[in-house]
């Protein structure tokens, strides 16, 4: 399937960012959303362009590292699912997808789609979760 992406690119915390458009022609519906970004980054790297920075770790829905704000919703269209467990079959051929970082004053953007979550870590460390 063909996918048009509008991705938030921001060099670092102190630089203004903007949405940049990319087109991917060969997306498989079985890819996870993050694998689709791997494909994008592969092609950017080969062209010598800076790949998109985004958080991820386990890629099996366990760790909570993956974030992304997709079409105005945290983790995209599904409810109760992480971004790494979102697959391209949830989208249609020719769709335009807007991908932004999670925007909140407490979580400044480090680069592109990666934000500084240490404020949240501090809440957990002080026992502020699940109590």
């Amino acid at each position: 399937m063909k996918i048009n992406l509008k991705v938030w690119r921001q060099k670092n915390t102190n630089t203004a960012g903007k949405l940049v458009e990319y087109q991917l022609d060969n997306v498989s519906e079985d890819m996870s959303f993050l694998e689709m970004f791997d494909v994008l980054n592969d092609s950017l790297t080969r062209k010598g362009e800076d790949p998109v920075t985004f958080d991820h770790d386990c890629r099996e829905g366990i760790c909570g590292m993956c974030s992304m704000y997709i079409n105005g919703r945290a983790h995209g269209p599904q409810t109760g699912a992480t971004t790494c467990q979102l697959h391209m079959r949830s989208f249609n051929d020719g769709d335009t997808i807007v991908v932004e970082p999670w925007r909140a004053r407490a979580f400044p953007v480090i680069k592109d789609l990666m934000v500084d979550r240490s404020a949240f870590d501090r809440i957990i460390q002080s026992g502020g979760m699940y109590r």
Binding site: N12, T45, R46, E49, D50, P51, T53, K111, M114
Partner: peptide, 12 residues
Amino acid sequence: KVLGDSEEMNQA
């Protein structure tokens, strides 16, 4: 092929 430099966030 690793782009960028070592003074910024560089996942690659």
